[in-house]
Each structure stands twice: as structure tokens, then as C-alpha cells.
């Protein structure tokens, strides 16, 4: 019998959206329509919630955590009778990974772009030209000095 890592659960409790993991009663209603589970035998939101309840920090927040295969479709949020909002628990776990520097590399790429330019997609001469051809105005400037204040903790 595994012992429960309450310290990790505390951490999850204090992350936005993580606390609801306590209320999962393992019914599996979140699994049937989960596309990531349909397409990958290794992904199962009920199991992720079980690992959260056990406080299995290594599996959930390690380099190869299954959580990154979630498609963020929110179907489990609709199905869960306990208002666990499994996808939000998964995102809370992602927040913990980000702190531990174990987040998927795509995450850092996109976030670096937002931190540098205020946007996820870079403006290029091609994108400017396309806008012009379509009769659209130039892209407005993002006030980065304001944004930078908000990236700080």
C-alpha cells in the first residue's frame, strides 16, 4: 500500500483550481468522452486524479508527466458529478511543473513570446503586407511597460 504524500497535496490545494482534487470519488465519469483517453491508452483523467489524491508528485510533475497529453477540451469538466473540474486540476499541476522547470518546452516558447512582445504570434513584414492587402489597419501596439509590471509576482 502506497503512503499518501500530503505535502504535495497541500501544494496542489494552494494552486488555483487544484483544491477540487479532494472531492474526486473515482467514478470514472470523466473518462468515457475524453478524447486524449480515446486516442492514448496511457492517458486517463480518473487515474490522474487518483495520482493527485495519492500525492504522486513524481508521476504528475516529472519530465514525462501524462498531463501534457490533455487536449484542454473541457469535456471532463462537463461530466464530473463532483465538480472536480479535472481539466482545471490538470492545469494546476501544469502550473506546478512550470515552477519546477519540467513544463513541456512549447509552453516556455509561447510564454517567452508573450513576455517579449505581448503576443503569441510574431508580427512580420509578410503579416503586415497581408493586412494591408486586405484593407486592414496596422496592428496596434501592446503597452509592454504595463504588461511587464503584471508578469512580476
Amino acid at each position: 500500500m502506497k503512503s499518501i504524500n500530503y505535502k504535495f497535496r497541500e501544494k496542489l490545494n494552494s494552486t488555483i483550481g487544484g483544491e477540487a482534487h479532494n472531492f474526486c470519488y473515482q467514478c470514472g465519469a470523466c473518462v468515457g468522452d475524453c478524447p486524449a483517453a480515446m486516442y492514448s491508452p496511457d492517458f486517463n483523467p480518473r487515474e490522474i486524479l487518483l495520482q493527485a489524491i495519492l500525492g504522486d508528485e513524481k508521476t504528475l510533475t516529472g519530465e514525462n508527466s501524462p498531463i501534457w497529453n490533455c487536449t484542454n477540451c473541457y469535456t471532463c469538466y462537463e461530466r464530473c458529478p463532483q465538480a472536480v473540474r479535472p481539466v482545471e486540476v490538470i492545469i494546476a499541476l501544469k502550473n506546478i511543473c512550470y515552477q519546477k522547470m519540467t513544463a513541456a518546452p512549447e509552453v516556455r516558447e509561447i510564454v517567452d513570446s508573450v513576455k517579449a512582445t505581448g503576443r503569441t504570434v510574431k508580427i512580420t513584414s509578410l503579416s503586415d503586407r497581408r493586412r494591408k492587402e486586405l484593407g486592414l489597419k496596422e496592428v496596434k501596439i501592446v503597452p509592454m511597460e504595463e504588461l511587464r509590471e503584471l508578469f512580476e509576482q
Binding site: 488555483i16 484542454n72 494546476a92 502550473n95 513541456a104 508573450v114 503569441t120 503597452p143
Partner: peptide, 16 residues
């Protein structure tokens, strides 16, 4: 003055 919304997948994954 708008910025990225910011995106609900990657950015949300860093710090809600």
C-alpha cells in the same frame, strides 16, 4: 492597449 488574451493553453499552464 489590448495584449494577448493571454492564451488559455500555454500561458494558463504557467501561472493561473
Amino acid at each position: 492597449g489590448f495584449s494577448c488574451c493571454p492564451d488559455p493553453i500555454y500561458f494558463k499552464a504557467t501561472d493561473k
